[in-house]
């Protein structure tokens, strides 16, 4: 029981940190994708969308290689005096960022595209500089998109399994998340505990999605 609570706490922490990082990276990325005229932009879009179709174990495998002592990221971490990132919480965060990236970037890109250039030009003629107008016009107008992005990023990270299994291992108190805890319970035929955790995840996901759809509907009513 205590183990399950710890796993639950780690899951929430992982999802929260991942969501914050994704919003920080995803916003400029989505902005660039929405505005850029670069002809090879579709290549970037393809790479970002890959986790949508790639089996999580494939993504997890490559991440494991990259995060390990001989990998690009793990090696860099070691060279900077750290340790390899495979089987650590930091490693999980990095993996989750890749895994949930499309769920944050796509809603943001869509909302930025839909809002269009016109209001930003108006803001420019009203003396607002580029950063000013992004925060005073684009961010408030794109609020439904930010909400969708944050909730989808968060919920999707909570639900990840394959990637975590590959790069996080199953270290209680460090990298054991709730989806893996469920798997462990089922493996040991502890169906009662599995039921509990599964129900909690089901309810949480339902509530999060309900919040997105409900709030976005309110916003769109305000807007129409």
């Amino acid at each position: 029981m205590y183990d399950d609570l710890v796993a639950f706490a780690i899951t929430l922490k992982l999802a929260a940190i991942t969501t914050v990082i994704l919003l920080l990276i995803g916003t400029p990325l989505a902005w660039w994708l929405a505005r850029s005229q670069w002809r090879y932009k579709f290549l970037v879009e393809t790479v970002i969308a890959l986790p949508l179709v790639l089996p999580p174990t494939v993504l997890g495998f490559y991440l494991l290689v990259m995060l390990g002592p001989n990998g690009l990221i793990g090696g860099l971490s070691e060279a900077l005096g750290g340790r390899p990132l495979a089987f650590t919480f930091t490693g999980l965060v990095i993996g989750s960022v890749f895994y949930s990236l499309p769920f944050v970037v796509q809603p943001l890109q869509n909302v930025f595209t839909a809002i269009g250039e016109n209001v930003m030009e108006q803001a420019a003629t009203l003396r607002a500089g580029p950063i000013d107008r992004f925060f005073s016009v684009m961010v408030p107008m794109a609020r439904p998109g930010f909400l969708t992005a944050a909730v989808l990023g968060f919920a999707h990270t909570i639900g990840e399994f394959g990637v975590v299994l590959m790069i996080g291992g199953n270290i209680p108190g460090s990298t054991k998340v709730i989806s893996i805890a469920i798997y462990d319970h089922v493996e040991s035929l502890e169906y009662a505990q599995a039921h509990w955790l599964a129900a909690v995840l089901l309810l949480l996901s339902f509530l999060l999605l309900m919040a997105v759809y409900g709030l976005n509907r309110r916003f769109s009513v305000l807007r129409s």
Binding site: N118, V119, E121, V137, R143
Partner: peptide, 10 residues
């Protein structure tokens, strides 16, 4: 003053 007067909706 633009053609369509699109004001800031927020």
């Amino acid at each position: 003053v633009f053609q369509d007067a699109s004001l800031f909706p927020h």
